[in-house]
Simulated assay, not measured.
Amino acid sequence: MKPLSRYASLNDYVELARSLGLEPARLIRDCGLDPAGFGTQDRWIPAEAVAELLERSAAESGRDDFGVRLAQLRRFSNLGPLSLVIREEPDVRSALRLLSRHEHMYNEALHTEVIEANGMATIRVNVDVGRAVPVRQAVELTTGVLHGLLRGFAGPTWRPMQVCFSRPAPREAATYLKMFGPQVEFDQDFDGILTYSSDLDAENAMADPLLHAYARQLLGAMTPAREATVADRVRQLVELLLPTGRCTVEQVARSLGVDRRTVHRKLAEDGTTFTAMVDDIRGALAERMVANRRHSLTEVGDLLGFSSVSNFSRWFSARYGVSPRQWRATSTPTSA
Rank of each mutant, 00 (worst) to 15 (best):
Y106L: 12
F186K: 02
C164K: 11
D187G: 09
C164L: 13
I86P: 01
T157F: 10
G62N: 04
D64R: 01
D91N: 14
I86D: 01
S83N: 05
L110S: 07
E48I: 07
S100I: 15
D91I: 06
G144V: 05
G80F: 10
P46R: 08
A132I: 08
V133C: 03
V125Y: 00
V85D: 06
L53F: 06
V139Y: 00
R56M: 02
Q188T: 12
L82I: 11
L99Q: 11
A117Q: 08
R167T: 11
V133K: 04
P182T: 15
G155S: 13
F153P: 07
M120V: 15
N126W: 08
F190R: 09
L146R: 05
L177I: 13
E89T: 09
L149H: 10
M120R: 15
Y106H: 13
R74A: 09
R93F: 13
L79I: 04
Y176W: 13
W44R: 04
L96W: 08
Q72N: 10
H104C: 10
D128I: 14
L110T: 05
I115W: 06
S77A: 10
L70D: 05
A109S: 15
A71I: 08
A173S: 12
G144D: 12
G155Q: 14
L54A: 03
F76D: 02
Y176R: 03
M120A: 14
L141H: 10
Q72C: 11
H147W: 13
F165S: 06
R101D: 15
A154D: 13
F180I: 05
R75S: 08
L73T: 09
V135T: 14
V92W: 05
T142V: 11
L73Q: 06
A154K: 04
P156K: 13
L98N: 05
E55V: 01
D191C: 08
N107K: 07
L99Y: 15
E108P: 01
S77E: 11
V139Q: 02
V135C: 09
E89K: 11
A117P: 00
G67M: 00
R63A: 02
F180Q: 01
W158E: 09
I86E: 04
Q72K: 13
N107D: 15
I45V: 15
E116G: 08
G152N: 07
E60I: 00
K178Y: 11
W44D: 03
V125K: 00
R124Q: 06
Y176H: 12
R171C: 04
L146H: 05
I115N: 08
P134Q: 12
R69N: 01
E103H: 15
L146D: 02
A173K: 04
L177K: 11
D128N: 15
